[in-house]
Design a protein around this nucleic acid. Sequence first.
DNA 1: TTGAAAGCGGTACCAC
DNA 2: GTGGTACCGCTTTCAA
Lengths: 372, 372
Amino acid sequence: MKRSGRRDRTFLRENGSEVKSPGIKDIAKVALVSIGTVDRALHARPGISSGTRARILKIAERLGYRPNLAARYLKLSHQRKIAVHLPRDIASYFDALRAGVRHAAAQLQPPLEVEFYSYPRIGLGDVESMQTVLDGSCDGLILAPGSLSQITPMIRKATSRGIPVVCVATDAPDTDRLTVISSEPFTSGAIVAELLSRSRKEPTEAAIITGDLTTFDHYEKARGFRFMLSEIGSPVKLVEVVEAHDEYEEAYRKTCSLLNRYPKLSGIYVSTSNSLPVIKALEEKGRLGQMNVVLTDLFPEIVPLIRTGRIFATLYQRPLTQGRMAYEALYRFLMEGVRPRPAYRLAPYIILRSNIDLFLENSPGEIRGVSP
Amino acid sequence: MKRSGRRDRTFLRENGSEVKSPGIKDIAKVALVSIGTVDRALHARPGISSGTRARILKIAERLGYRPNLAARYLKLSHQRKIAVHLPRDIASYFDALRAGVRHAAAQLQPPLEVEFYSYPRIGLGDVESMQTVLDGSCDGLILAPGSLSQITPMIRKATSRGIPVVCVATDAPDTDRLTVISSEPFTSGAIVAELLSRSRKEPTEAAIITGDLTTFDHYEKARGFRFMLSEIGSPVKLVEVVEAHDEYEEAYRKTCSLLNRYPKLSGIYVSTSNSLPVIKALEEKGRLGQMNVVLTDLFPEIVPLIRTGRIFATLYQRPLTQGRMAYEALYRFLMEGVRPRPAYRLAPYIILRSNIDLFLENSPGEIRGVSP
DNA sequence: TTGAAAGCGGTACCAC
DNA sequence: GTGGTACCGCTTTCAA
């Protein structure tokens, strides 16, 4: 039987007995130097001759030296601190994102100190929020860059001071942020186009209700939608892209108008979280349940609509995972010096009538599953 | 501006200055005892009067004592070892599961020592594989319980010796395994039924190709499929459930026969990984691309078929996540005494033409994303 | 029943 | 350039 083992802190001696994995003392003993010298060699510190350094490094490698992180953190126990700047709105989304950060922080030992700063909503209070923290001091930043023109220089300032910045939810291009974790909007749009097109032969009409096409995320969703329609030669025709600017009244009004103008409209894709006014309009016109409606994100009001099939699907942008990954990326960079990829683009989950209960079972509070 | 902080190892003194979080020394100082006594109190060790214990515990609570895990692990550095027993087949699935375990092991510090044991396939060599490890010694077990009748007593034996067992991929009911991490089969079947039914008005026929209906996982998928058909009043009629016993030849032969007998069959759900023979049969009969086909799991041969739309979808059972969660559950139990939920049921991912590339971008080797 | 002290494996600092 | 040593917070052992 094959037996492929993995030994982290122990290794097999030739006689087969297990011994503890080597530490700097073992290296020192073999190299006939002191542990101080070994330390200098391993960390490329000054005050050591290149000859001994090379010799020690080779020995360390031969012995399979791996530092004991517990010991290191114990000694260096100066707590690092990161700040998380996110809007309060939309709560269902950003609360989950914060929960993801918290979850990851509880998992990775030793934890970073995390401070949460909340401002009313994107574009309102975000700049001030970040300003206060830059005046103070912290070792890393997680934020959702809303008003790009104002946030971009702040990100620059932070990184120029050596403070790594991780963007979540949306990206800040042309900055040297450490990385970005976001749901991939183009794919979201493409998925919806595919779902709405599936097994239709006769031509039908669909519309998108979005926020603002100058927003990268919103634009990309529409682009992905169009792309997939043509890619699969869909019989669905996109008749309109409605910008509702994430306002309740505007979305309601424009949806009513849309439904009046397209009595045969059979599909709607709401590509932001602003879906409640759209549903209200559909309901009032008696067309909820008659059309294929795909939404974005999941919150309590949506659940019964999906359970009963009045809403076909919603795309869940995995805020919990985003938060967890943002923390992890920052953690590994701060604690281990590991640079993450420049971007992590998550595939959204497709939530349907058939799987929504499983999603709900796994989400509330418990986040990813294994926590208490 | 609201500022909700979270302090793990530091706390705010009344004057607002940050100090390090209290350790057992601080408790000892306040309680006017030695750190040894504090230790006895905190760990409910013998040799301490219940009076002082209560007093110390109260002080510890008041100070918000949280043990420094780095220090604890440093001192206790006896490495715990877990064994992972999984079949070699189906490699695309179980290799990913192993990778998930490895990934989690690299994340959670200090790592457990992980030994991988592989046997040819479920039902072949699994019992022997587990036997060897029970003879040896380890602190925990991760395994896919295949031949229930034989594995069940071994799980009993392990747990009776105090060795926790985590099941993955499939469950072993009526044992006291610590927990099970698996993809939810009933939901898988339900999702496929919903996908195949969507926006069909005229009656159509569908079939399931499965392994063996006496296998819980396979049975549940068929049950979920049937359930969702009736739940949504689907026009799709399930005409046959074919058992192919995960054999290539048998699946090919039976699919050919199926296609001959149902010339109007428009949907097929392959509920195990054994999809290649089915695809071959479809291709030879010229019906690949003509029908709605939904598969299970993702491996290289499938990718181009989905990209070109010849296969509608595949349900990905998230082996990486399963592996990661299994390790995490075992880790938290062994290291922190945290008991996991009795079962974690994962929602499968729906992979379509529109999102397959994003899945591939995030999967290969990099597993969950943030690792190097 | 309690106190004192020795490490665990690193890092950092001082003395040579 | 190099060696020696204190110390991080906790567990454990031995002595009182």
